[in-house]
């Protein structure tokens, strides 16, 4: 069995994700051979590809929308005619999708602080994100995040925030009960005292969120050497595969 994981390669930090995905897959295959069946007895092979066309997207069982400029990605995706297929991938086929930074913006149902005239989104997360939440590049920063979904005992994750968006509101959904939502709040326990320094109580900012098959982070795990979130997400992809949510396996 081979699981194909794509990284949308219209613009932005693509190879960084591919490189961490490969390391995460190596980590999974090492840990599955060493820890008595906690992973699948036979771990499927992963195939990691760049996605620029409809044909490449059709091959994918899961997808990462990377960081970059969300306005650029939306314009290029529109021109390539990828939007309907992306929406189908996320909202009809419910395949696992993860967006980082600009990718989180793309996966939100609503975004504020967008360019004049608005910008097209894929949607899938019933949230409103605010773009460039912290300001311009001068306000970009690195902060330690306590991410409960990695495990309560885990060391903090170095979150790299670059002109980052955050989730400003979780919206009540028409589809799916609240029980199906699993919301992760990260920056609340960011260390270093910078949250209070920046004012406006960003200590409550939601910087990671998952609803069903859709996961989004404001920050860039792919700009670190820390493989934990990629490993965690690949496990979600494997789970989806095991439960038959993925087609053609």
């Amino acid at each position: 069995m081979t699981i194909t994981v794509g990284v949308l390669a219209l613009q932005g930090g693509v190879i960084e994700h591919l490189s961490l995905l490969r390391r995460a897959a190596d980590y999974l295959s090492t840990s599955s051979s060493s820890n008595d069946g906690k992973e699948l007895a036979t771990l499927p092979d992963f195939d990691f590809i760049q996605v620029r066309t409809k044909e490449q997207l059709a091959q994918c069982d899961a997808l990462i929308i990377p960081g970059g400029e969300s306005t650029t990605m939306a314009i290029v995706a529109r021109r390539l005619g990828l939007f309907d297929q992306l929406r189908d991938f996320v909202k009809v086929q419910h395949k696992p999708v993860w967006g980082t930074c600009a990718g989180l913006v793309m996966l939100a149902e609503e975004a504020s602080a967008v360019k004049k005239g608005g910008q097209e989104l894929v949607g899938g997360l019933d949230v409103r994100v605010v773009r460039n939440r912290y300001g311009t590049q001068i306000q970009s920063f690195v902060a330690d995040l306590k991410l409960p979904f990695l495990g309560e005992e885990e060391a903090p994750f170095r979150g790299v925030f670059i002109r980052a968006p955050v989730v400003e509101e979780i919206m009540t959904t028409t589809s799916g009960s609240p029980a199906e939502q699993e919301v992760k709040e990260g920056a609340a326990s960011a260390s270093g005292g910078q949250q209070s320094e920046r004012g406006a109580a960003p200590g409550d900012d939601i910087v990671a969120v998952r609803q069903r098959n859709v996961f989004g982070t404001s920050f860039h795990p792919e700009l670190t050497q820390d493989v934990r979130i990629h490993v965690w997400w690949l496990r979600q992809v494997l789970d989806a595969a095991r439960h038959g949510d993925l087609v053609a396996l």
């Binding site: 390669a9 219209l10 613009q11 932005g12 930090g13 693509v14 960084e16 960081g67 970059g68 400029e69 650029t72 930074c101 600009a102 590049q137 970009s140 920063f141 690195v142 790299v160 925030f161 670059i162 002109r163 860039h220 700009l223 670190t224």
Partner: peptide, 14 residues
């Protein structure tokens, strides 16, 4: 430096 170089990484392909 991660934050500085990271913005350039997000501009790639553009």
């Amino acid at each position: 430096f991660t934050v500085k170089a990271g913005l350039a990484q997000m501009l790639k392909g553009g």
